[in-house]
């Protein structure tokens, strides 16, 4: 088989070197590593969070339980897991917009949203989200009117946060699964709103 040379970044090489050392010394079992990588590549991701959001949109009782005790309501769907052990769900409304950050490092509800995006871990996001959330949101393309209260949640301890975004208008006819398909990762962090489907369903005759 032809050897195709692809330059690898310094960090990738470093990871490779550390991994082979850990495996050689018997500190890490490669099968265990594969199990973890496989889980985050194929099972765990923002589609889990989207399921929770869509269910809350169509089921008022579930929404109430979710906002009162995020951990147990999420456990009802079997979606708890590593780094999502203690969950708090905060609701966006026409009066309140919530934004999640971890200024300390990059705490994030892994079991529900998957691995955090690079920007979430950047120094710029972590420092600016608390100091000037309106400017940061503007840069994400989200203008929050002055009369709307912004609540920034610094997930500094062991609780993890999920934003329950507003359900877009004209989605009454959509199924729970179709609604889940509209929910983006950023909407559940608070750096985006959920957009209605295109083309608008109201145009259907």
């Amino acid at each position: 088989m032809a050897h195709t040379h692809r330059p690898e970044s310094e960090i990738a090489l470093r990871v490779k070197a550390i991994e082979s050392l850990l495996v050689e010394k018997g500190i890490v079992d490669p099968a265990t590593l594969d199990t973890i990588i496989e889980a985050y590549e194929h099972q765990i991701g923002p589609h889990n969070g989207a399921r929770i959001v869509a269910k809350a949109w169509v089921d008022a009782d579930y929404k109430q339980r979710l906002l009162a005790d995020g951990t147990s309501a999420i456990a009802e769907l079997g979606l708890t897991g590593f780094s999502s052990e203690h969950m708090v769900v905060v609701e966006n409304t026409p009066q309140v917009h919530n934004l999640i950050v971890c200024t300390l490092c990059s705490c994030y509800p892994w079991a529900i949203l998957g691995l955090p995006p690079t920007w979430y871990k950047s120094f710029a996001y972590r420092s600016r989200a608390v100091i000037e959330p309106r400017k940061v949101l503007q840069e994400f393309g989200l203008a929050i009117p002055d009369e709307v209260e912004i609540r920034v949640w610094d997930s500094n301890a062991d609780l993890r946060y999920l934003v329950l975004p507003e359900r877009p208008q004209d989605t009454e006819d959509l199924s729970e699964a179709a609604l889940a398909g509209l929910v983006t990762r950023n909407a559940m962090i608070g750096t985006a709103k959920v957009q209605p489907p295109a083309p608008p369903s109201t145009l259907a005759a």
Binding site: R134, E149, I150, D154, A157, L159
Partner: peptide
């Protein structure tokens, strides 16, 4: 800062 905005943080 905005008079309307606030920050929530979990403290020990």
């Amino acid at each position: 800062a905005s008079p309307r905005d606030c920050l929530y943080i979990d403290l020990f």
